[in-house]
Design a protein around this nucleic acid. Structure first.
Lengths: 169, 169
DNA sequence: TTGGAGTGTCAACAACGCTGACTTAAAGTG
DNA sequence: CACTTTAAGTCAGCGTTGTTGACACTCCAA
């Protein structure tokens, strides 16, 4: 990362970003995301499930009782797409759909015991990789990692991300 | 995943990584990767192309004359999958496939003028986002970002990643 | 000349996005 | 109460992109 030789500090750091540096960043994202999903993918492959199932389990675990609509906006897919996934998860007894108490149109989603077990298994292998990566890179690197990722999100995605964080405090 | 409090420092930095921190990291990866691909995806949608086409164009651009086999190992897909993409790109005149001079079994891949133009268009919007993110996060954050991403790759992917970097020096 | 590597192609399938159209039920509103 | 809106579910169909398996062709090398 070459720095600006001279140049005015105006609150924001000035960076001369060459084509090559940005290209490397893009490739790093590509390869790293592959690594990031590789371990859960291996487990899911044997269950006729896919990444979409993992994501659903992950976010239901993280926000128990969430509604379908809320999950839709987090995942950013169509309800038809999500419904296909939820249907199989409910049929297989991993997710429970409870009719809303106040608003009976809503369905509140919860993991069953079996759902929790699979979620745990999936995210365990994923977290093992992240833990190793975090340790290798060190705490400052992790802070930077999170900072760049957050800056890379769409504003709406960033809002979702922060809301989830705060919701778990 | 709560960490052991205490523990020996053995050259590696010690980090207390809570379940929540790792969960946030995973979510950050998910949301950021969505942002990362959003802009090129919008352009590709209108061309009946997808991400796979973008990736092929990207890596052919970065390593002109690469063979199909080499591209396969970089992208980590089957030859049937890659072939489908390459066939359309060649048919549409974006990629040129030249029979190897020394080994005539090999096909060396190059972008045509039109291919270069589309690759430029796609990566321009992607790089614009990365540039903004990099500037917002600052140079130390970027260094950490790259460090963590690299640590997150599979060893083979990391090898590929570094080889590409060195190949362009 | 035979075997193997590199490449290309066909067929079939699965996961998971999408759109569009439609239903049911409940809630909100005039 | 009648009407509209909202939440959810469903059906049908399509596109991209990954997968296997099978097979053919070219060319190099033992």
């Amino acid at each position: 990362m070459t720095e600006a030789p001279g140049g005015q500090a105006s609150g924001e750091t000035l960076l001369y970003l060459t084509d090559e540096q940005l290209r490397q960043g893009a490739e790093a994202m590509f390869f790293a995301y592959r690594g990031f999903t590789a371990d859960p993918d291996r487990i899911l492959a044997g269950l006729s499930y896919g990444r979409a199932h993992h994501r659903a389990l992950h976010f239901i675990h993280g926000a128990p009782g969430t509604t379908v609509n809320n999950l839709l906006s987090i995942l950013g897919v169509t309800k038809q797409s999500l419904n296909r996934v939820l249907r199989t998860l409910i049929a297989d007894g991993l997710v429970e759909s409870r009719v809303g108490r106040d608003d009976k149109r809503e369905r509140h989603l919860h993991l069953t015991e079996a759902g929790r077990a699979l979620e745990q298994e999936l995210t365990d292998v994923q977290r093992a990789r992240m833990r190793t990566a975090y340790r290798q890179a060190g705490p400052e690197a992790v802070a930077g990692f999170r900072k760049v990722l957050e800056a890379m999100m769409d504003p709406e995605q960033r809002r979702q991300y922060k809301a989830l964080r705060e919701g778990r405090g």
